[in-house]
Design a protein around this nucleic acid. Structure first.
Lengths: 336, 336
DNA sequence: GAGCACCTTCGAAGCGCTTCGATTGCGATT
DNA sequence: AATCGCAATCGAAGCGCTTCGAAGGTGCTC
């Protein structure tokens, strides 16, 4: 392999000079810099990651803990992942993928063996059980999701409470008076997944404020469950005119079930969806949506954790403001 | 941080002895081993990954290159990813996630900087352009997917040719004479994605052998495209009785579109799907499927690459035999 | 009882890099 | 002309680990 010594010899300088060219931590004459850079290119030199980590106690690797569960919508998870990887690379970092099934020991291992500089955690619960371990790690941590008590850990997420409010307000502004929510799978609620509860509270709270009759439902990601759930929505409120769907996995099936039952969208029923932007356009009716800004959240998570690594930042909680994009799935309610 | 020297001092031995306890490369007396292991536990020692990599030129990290594209069905990709991560951990390895957007330089960087010991590549094309780079890396590589010319690289995948044959044979055995295929998105074919072509050839070839009238279609993952595609299937062969769906993303929509048009499954039309096992059960009719064994493929990929790292294996191409699981979506064709 | 083989352990070297202090040479200042 | 400050570079130490050769100890054999 090509080492820094090879480059130094080739460029006629010492190894430390090469190192300083690479890191920019000391001033180097333009001429030397050019020669060194030329040698690096010519020899195809890449610093040995292990040696660098050993000497500098920096790996330039971020660990990302992803959920293995399938009750969370996988494409949405994947969007976060790719966003994190892409942003990390833009800042010259790589991403190590961890799953939860190693438990707290896995986190300790990664931190203690200095295999990554910092940790990003997805699939955060309201009463997040990993918080104590994460705090003990003495490494920067950013949660993608906001637990009830972040306890000095950084968090970033869409403001799901406000997102729900935006959905309800939109329907209320159009004149709807009876609305329903189809939320995530019961398993997601039972686990106390942070965004689910925040959205639900936003939904019921805002509906109350606006004086709307509102019923919240939960729907597992199977055809059977969707059919039952749609039946239930229509049985509980036969005269419902507005529907908020906060469950990407069943969105398509819900729409076709409604249409199969003869409900025209938006003539009979208005639908607001919470989902990634590009998902909204792949249905028969372009949907009115509040977008889940996976890209922004992933990028921010990376930037926040890097800022902490540079010692330039205290932990913070960042909630991104939701934006509602009007589509053709919402309209004023039918006159009864 | 706790170092090997700390453990050595605590256990009253030399650092090298601790190292040998950990690696098992030399015999250690039972008593010493016990003392060392106790110290390790007590102090919470984890070897410094960088130092280990530097000294042993082994990182215990596998790089996994995943596609960023969205025309490949994301949940299927994610299954491979989790399978790889889980298997890697079982063999005491971690997984570094790479995307393709760094291009060949990204691969060179990872190999040259010794940040990973080996590389696993997903989303392989028939005329895989990355093969020359991968060969130049001097590191074990396993492709998840089989290019036309693997050129001394290891590959592992479902035998999609045989999978298609199994689908067609099943329909032929039931007595069907006119069948259709709904395959992946046109974009997938255009790119020459390896599994798509292999499946298509298996489909048309077997249909010819069995004397079936067969038409192959391609379908992009949007509601519009599905509707058009279903229309086209029925227009091209008004008397079609068997349908093979090799496109996880549109499977659900295809089924509901067929039902919306009054085609009962399997009474009027038999459907065989190619998709991960657990996906088959989430529709109104439990589907007859040929499963995509993501878990097996991921696990095998890891095992193959580790065997190469141990120097114990030459490159090989492994095609997993497909298995057809009968569901309730296929039956003999209606009498006409 | 000298010689041998084997098991167990140790010490030292070295993996490739970063970083600190020291050194050199130069123009500017007094 | 001596001094100072600064820019540019070098050399050496050290990061925490693995691994090699060597050494001490034990129990054999002949």
């Amino acid at each position: 392999m090509v080492t820094i010594a090879d480059v130094a010899r080739d460029a006629g300088v010492s190894a430390s000079t090469v190192s300083y060219v690479l890191s920019g931590k000391r001033s180097i004459s333009a001429d030397t810099r050019r020669r060194v850079e030329a040698s690096i290119r010519r020899l195809g030199y890449h610093p040995h990651a292990g040696a660098r980590a050993l000497a500098s106690s920096r790996t330039n690797v971020l660990a990302l803990v992803v959920p293995l569960r399938t009750d969370i919508h996988v494409p949405v998870v994947m969007r976060f992942v790719t966003s994190v990887v892409t942003s990390a690379r833009e800042h010259d970092h790589d991403v190590l993928l961890l799953t939860n099934d190693e438990g707290p020991d896995g986190l300790r291992r990664v931190a203690a063996s200095a295999i990554a500089d910092a940790i990003l955690v997805m699939d955060v619960e309201a009463e997040e059980p990993r918080i104590p371990v994460l705090q003990s790690l003495l490494r920067p941590v950013v949660l993608i999701g906001v637990p009830d008590d972040p306890a000095e850990l950084s968090c970033v997420d869409l403001d799901f409470h406000a997102a729900a409010a935006r959905c309800v307000d939109h329907l209320a502004d159009l004149g709807h008076e009876r609305i329903a929510l189809i939320g995530p799978s019961p398993a997601v609620y039972e686990r106390g997944t942070s965004f689910a509860g925040r959205f639900l509270r936003g939904f019921t709270g805002t509906a109350r404020e606006r004086g709307l009759a509102a019923v919240a439902h939960s729907c597992a990601p199977s055809y059977e469950a969707v059919r039952e759930c749609v039946d239930k929505v229509l049985a509980d409120q036969p005269d419902v005119t507005g529907l908020v769907v906060h469950n990407e996995a069943v969105l398509g099936t819900v729409l076709s079930e409604l249409q199969r039952r003869g409900h025209r969208i938006p003539a009979d029923l208005s639908v607001v969806a919470v989902c990634p932007e590009d998902m909204a356009v792949s249905y028969s009716v372009p949907l009115t949506t509040v977008a889940i800004p996976s890209d922004d959240v992933g990028r921010l998570a990376v930037e926040m954790v890097l800022r902490q690594l540079d010692g330039a930042a205290a932990p913070e909680v960042r909630l991104l403001s939701p934006r509602l994009s009007p589509g053709h799935s919402t309209a004023p309610p039918p006159r009864s």
